[in-house]
């Protein structure tokens, strides 16, 4: 008989990743035109969160062998023995079906289809295939993490628009520099686990260059909603400053020397990237909410 508590099952859902998914999906849902029923909006966010958690549980089921090797993941419920692999698989599958069906029945089937695709993409395409096969794993796999705002938008409108695709692109381009910054200072972990992350395959110098290239792509894409007139200039300025910050931190990583084992610039970029994503979506949300409030107030 298992000694796993509800907390262990909650840990299978990767709550920190889930919080990012919830936030970006919420922004997509609120930024969409029209006013969704608040109750159905809450249900949509809940279903998206559970679906994201389910894919996390499936990931932990499949990756238990390599999670046990890496210091960052060794204490997860499956490698530590608190939850069996079979229990994690069942939990992930049940929650996947439940979240997709709930979203489909209560909200709409486009958003449910996108959620199902996201779970499949993360659990099967990324976890089972790309992650152990190519250093482009997190580039392609990043699509799964980038879809939540599109699902939120689809939940509110029943459609997908260019505006929601730009939100997708921001997260998609943010993912490689974010994870490669981590992979630089955790290269030993990935090496032991046999995961072909970019620094282990192409080398640190190439990874630093690629991080910088992605930062150069990300910064202007972050400003696109302002340029396309989806937001006010206020958001555009905030996105520009945040993007310049990202390029600056990436530049410091580019200049990092091979013999630098402390890798402070990579750690700083990793920290800043988390701040960047939260801040740019918060700015987008604030711009949208303030804009609507001004319209309602007749300003």
């Amino acid at each position: 008989m298992s000694e796993a508590t509800a907390g262990d099952y909650l840990a299978l859902l990767k709550p920190r990743v889930m919080s990012l998914v919830v936030f970006t999906a919420f922004v997509g849902l609120i930024a969409a035109p029209g006013v969704p029923n608040p109750l159905l909006a809450v249900i949509a966010i809940l279903a998206i969160a559970i679906g994201a958690g389910a894919s996390g549980a499936l990931n932990m089921w499949y990756d238990a062998d390599i999670d046990a090797i890496m210091t960052r993941t060794a204490t997860r419920p499956v490698p530590s023995g608190r939850v069996s692999a079979g229990e994690a698989l069942s939990f992930g599958l049940i929650l996947s079906v439940l979240s997709v069906m709930t979203l489909g029945v209560l909200v709409n089937w486009l958003s449910a289809s996108l959620l199902a695709f996201t779970i499949f993409f993360y659990a099967v395409i990324y976890t089972m295939w790309l992650k152990r096969w190519t250093p482009q794993n997190i580039v392609i796999g990043g699509a799964a993490g980038a879809i939540p705002p599109v699902i939120g938008w689809a939940a509110a409108t029943g459609t997908v628009s260019l505006e929601s695709v730009i939100l997708f692109l921001i997260i998609f381009l943010w993912t490689p520099p974010h994870f490669w910054a981590l992979a630089l200072f955790k290269a030993g972990d990935y090496e032991r686990a046999g995961i072909p992350m970019m620094p282990n395959v192409a080398g640190e110098a190439s990874t630093r260059k690629q991080i910088f290239v992605y930062a150069l792509l990300l910064a202007p894409v972050g400003v696109l909603p302002g340029l396309f007139g989806y937001t006010t200039a206020g958001y555009g300025v905030a996105a520009l400053l945040l993007g310049l910050g990202f390029v600056w931190y990436s530049w410091k990583v580019l200049l990092m020397r091979d013999e630098d084992r402390a890798m402070k610039p990579a750690k700083a970029l990793f920290g800043y990237s988390l701040l960047y994503l939260f801040a740019i979506f918060a700015a987008y949300l604030a711009d949208n909410v303030i804009g609507r409030a001004l319209v309602l107030g007749g300003v």
Binding site: S2, A4, T5, L106
Partner: peptide, 22 residues
């Protein structure tokens, strides 16, 4: 084990109740 099972049972009960209400 008994304590863990009780903990899980409560969580499952609450989750099912929440689902019904939703």
């Amino acid at each position: 084990q008994k304590k863990a099972r009780r903990n899980r049972s409560i969580a499952i009960g609450l989750a099912l109740a929440a689902l019904v209400i939703i």
